[in-house]
Computed example of a mutant assay.
Amino acid sequence: MSKVVLSCRGLSKIYGTGAENVTVLNDVSFDLAAGESVAIVGASGSGKSTFLHLLGGLDYATSGDVLIAGRSWTAMSEKERGLWRNRHMGFVYQHHHLLPEFTAVENVAMPLYVRGLPKAAADAEAQEWLEKVGLGHRLLHTPAALSGGERQRTAIARALVTRPSVVLADEPTGNLDRQTAEQVFTLFRELSVQSGVAFVLVSHDPGLAAQLDRTMRLQDGVLSDASL
C-alpha cells in the first residue's frame, strides 16, 4: 500500500458565533497516498476552497488536525508552517499568480530562491520542469507573452519545482477553454505518475474530475466518495 502523505481527522470549520454559526466543514477525515490524484467537487460555496486552505495550513480549523508528511499543522509555529509548506507542498490556483516582471524560468525558480538555492542551480531546476510541462521553448518569456494555457503550465511547474509531497490545486482550469483544460488535467495525471507527487484538485467540472484516481464530494460540510 502506498505511503500516506496527507491526512486529516475530525476536521471542522465553523464561522460566526452563537445562532449565527455557519458550519463549512463538519468532522471531515481524509487520507491521500503518494502519487494519488483526488478531485473535490461540490456546489459553489460548499467549502471546497476552505478545505484546501486547511489542508495547506493557510487557515486554522475550529477542531481536528491535518498531517503533512507526518507533521501536524497545529504543532507548528507560523514560521515552521512556512518552511514546511516550501518543502512539502505546491499550490496552483485558478489565476496563475505569476510575477509579471519575471521570466518563466524565474517565476518557476522563485520557491527555490526563497529556499536559498543559488540562482544558477534554481534556474536549472526550473528549466527542467518547464521542459517537462512542454515549455522548454518559452523559458525567457514573461507572463504577458504566454497564452493562458502556457501561464497555467508555468504555474504547475512552479508548484512542482520543490519536488513536494502534495500539490493543492483550486479550480486550476477555471479560466481555460475546454481543450486547454483537458490538456492541463492530462498533465496533472502524467506528472502524478512520473514524479510520485499527490494532487488534491478542486473542480466544478465532473467530467474532468472523473479523470483523476478518486472523486470526493463536499456537501453540507461532509466529504464523501462521489461514486457512492
Results as ranks from 00 to 15, higher is better:
residue 80 E to P: 02
residue 80 E to L: 06
residue 81 R to I: 13
residue 82 G to Q: 08
residue 82 G to E: 11
residue 84 W to H: 15
residue 85 R to M: 15
residue 86 N to S: 10
residue 88 H to A: 12
residue 90 G to H: 04
residue 93 Y to A: 00
residue 94 Q to P: 01
residue 96 H to R: 02
residue 97 H to R: 00
residue 97 H to S: 00
residue 97 H to T: 00
residue 98 L to K: 02
residue 98 L to Y: 01
residue 99 L to I: 08
residue 100 P to W: 02
residue 100 P to R: 03
residue 101 E to Y: 02
residue 104 A to R: 14
residue 106 E to G: 04
residue 106 E to S: 07
residue 107 N to P: 01
residue 110 M to H: 01
residue 111 P to L: 07
residue 111 P to R: 07
residue 114 V to D: 05
residue 114 V to W: 11
residue 115 R to C: 00
residue 116 G to P: 10
residue 117 L to F: 04
residue 117 L to T: 15
residue 117 L to Y: 08
residue 118 P to F: 06
residue 118 P to W: 14
residue 119 K to R: 14
residue 119 K to I: 14
residue 121 A to T: 10
residue 122 A to Y: 12
residue 124 A to P: 08
residue 124 A to N: 13
residue 125 E to A: 12
residue 127 Q to A: 14
residue 127 Q to T: 15
residue 130 L to Y: 07
residue 131 E to A: 12
residue 131 E to D: 05
residue 131 E to P: 00
residue 131 E to H: 05
residue 131 E to F: 00
residue 132 K to H: 11
residue 134 G to V: 05
residue 135 L to E: 11
residue 135 L to S: 08
residue 136 G to R: 03
residue 136 G to W: 01
residue 136 G to D: 08
residue 137 H to A: 09
residue 138 R to F: 07
residue 138 R to D: 06
residue 140 L to I: 02
residue 140 L to Q: 14
residue 140 L to D: 13
residue 141 H to D: 02
residue 142 T to L: 01
residue 143 P to F: 07
residue 143 P to M: 03
residue 143 P to R: 04
residue 144 A to D: 14
residue 146 L to C: 06
residue 146 L to Y: 04
residue 146 L to S: 10
residue 147 S to F: 09
residue 148 G to I: 13
residue 149 G to L: 07
residue 150 E to T: 05
residue 151 R to P: 00
residue 153 R to N: 06
residue 154 T to L: 07
residue 155 A to H: 11
residue 158 R to P: 01
residue 158 R to E: 09
residue 159 A to P: 09
residue 159 A to E: 13
residue 160 L to T: 10
residue 161 V to T: 15
residue 161 V to M: 08
residue 162 T to N: 15
residue 163 R to W: 08
residue 164 P to T: 12
residue 165 S to H: 12
residue 165 S to E: 15
residue 166 V to A: 08
residue 167 V to L: 14
residue 168 L to R: 04
residue 169 A to K: 09
residue 169 A to H: 13
residue 169 A to C: 06
residue 170 D to T: 11
residue 171 E to D: 12
residue 171 E to G: 07
residue 174 G to D: 04
residue 174 G to H: 05
residue 175 N to F: 09
residue 175 N to Q: 14
residue 176 L to H: 11
residue 177 D to N: 09
residue 178 R to F: 00
residue 179 Q to N: 14
residue 180 T to D: 10
residue 180 T to W: 14
residue 180 T to N: 06
residue 181 A to Q: 08
residue 182 E to I: 09
residue 182 E to F: 07
residue 183 Q to M: 14
residue 183 Q to L: 11
residue 184 V to K: 03
residue 184 V to D: 04
residue 186 T to G: 09
residue 186 T to A: 11
residue 187 L to W: 09
residue 188 F to M: 07
residue 189 R to N: 06
residue 190 E to H: 10
residue 190 E to C: 00
residue 192 S to D: 05
residue 192 S to R: 13
residue 192 S to T: 13
residue 193 V to F: 05
residue 194 Q to E: 15
residue 196 G to Y: 09
residue 197 V to W: 06
residue 198 A to M: 03
residue 199 F to V: 04
residue 199 F to R: 09
residue 201 L to W: 01
residue 203 S to G: 01
residue 203 S to M: 00
residue 204 H to W: 08
residue 205 D to I: 03
residue 205 D to K: 13
residue 207 G to D: 11
residue 207 G to S: 11
residue 208 L to S: 02
residue 209 A to T: 11
residue 212 L to R: 02
residue 212 L to Q: 06
